[in-house]
Amino acid sequence: MVANIIFGIGITALAGALATVAGSSEDTESNIGSQGDPNSQVQLAPQMGFLHRIFNKAVAGEPPAYGLWCCLGAGLAWAFMAMQINPVLAIVLGSVLATFVQGVYATTAYVGRTASLAKFGQPVYVDILKSMTSVTMAHAFIAIFCTVTLCHLINTALGHPFPLPLLGLIWGIALGAAGSATGNPYYGKERQYQNQKFGAGVPISASGNIVRYAEAGERNSLDNGFFTHKIGGSASGICFGLIVFLELWRTILFEQVGAGWGAIIVGVLIILIFTVIDRYIEVWARKNYGPYTEVKEVSS
């Protein structure tokens, strides 16, 4: 019994670590591709006359997109394991094929969106297509591989009843949601508008006027990935890592309490604790940063 719990906690820690890497990699991948919420400004910029060399990989929102990549990776791994292939090799092969699908979707999205903006003179940059797609594929592979591996751990080591592809779908969507909610604002609200006052939001007059030039030369999406990985990527990694870790931790430790109700009650408690922490951080940040207080002083 105790040995089981210790084994479970070990798996939980390993899954949490994998999830942290996956979250960090996922956010960097989506930022290099301008996927999710920052995409609207990248799409809008040429229409406002701001031509750019930013990669515009609009496949879908991150949750459905990562739902597919991870589900596909898990499904292929499941099929390879059914063919009696070693799980490690099966997961790697499944992730490689899922990454291939991701890369194809990325190229068709960039080329298609840009070709539809021909009226505004936005050219298709073949060098952007080549260099950015390969980098996003590399990051996507890490994210997919880590997620499928943690699903495999949950399935085989912890004995979760769901089949591997379904776990891939669920955790893939969770991964996309974590990256989309945590890391994306840092790119969409901060990096794209570094030329605006901090915390000012995006005034309508500045719509589409995203940062397009670097210290030297013109900026491309690799610079954006480099910039956002430091804080946005790490925050997404911690977010997804905590989600996976706490979810498994409460299940392993409290599932036996009260015929399963123990795990549910602990889950609700965790949500309440995080709500309090989030509210405290938000109020603290508003007090210490941004123009909120200045505006009050002017009006009073």
């Binding site: 031509l51 080329v111 840009t114 003179g121 050219p123 298709v124 940059y125 060098d127 013109e218």
Partner: peptide
């Protein structure tokens, strides 16, 4: 896409 795009450039600056 090549037919419809405004231009198909390789490593060129922003026009």
């Amino acid at each position: 896409s090549k037919r419809d795009a405004a231009a198909w450039l390789n490593a060129k600056p922003i026009p």
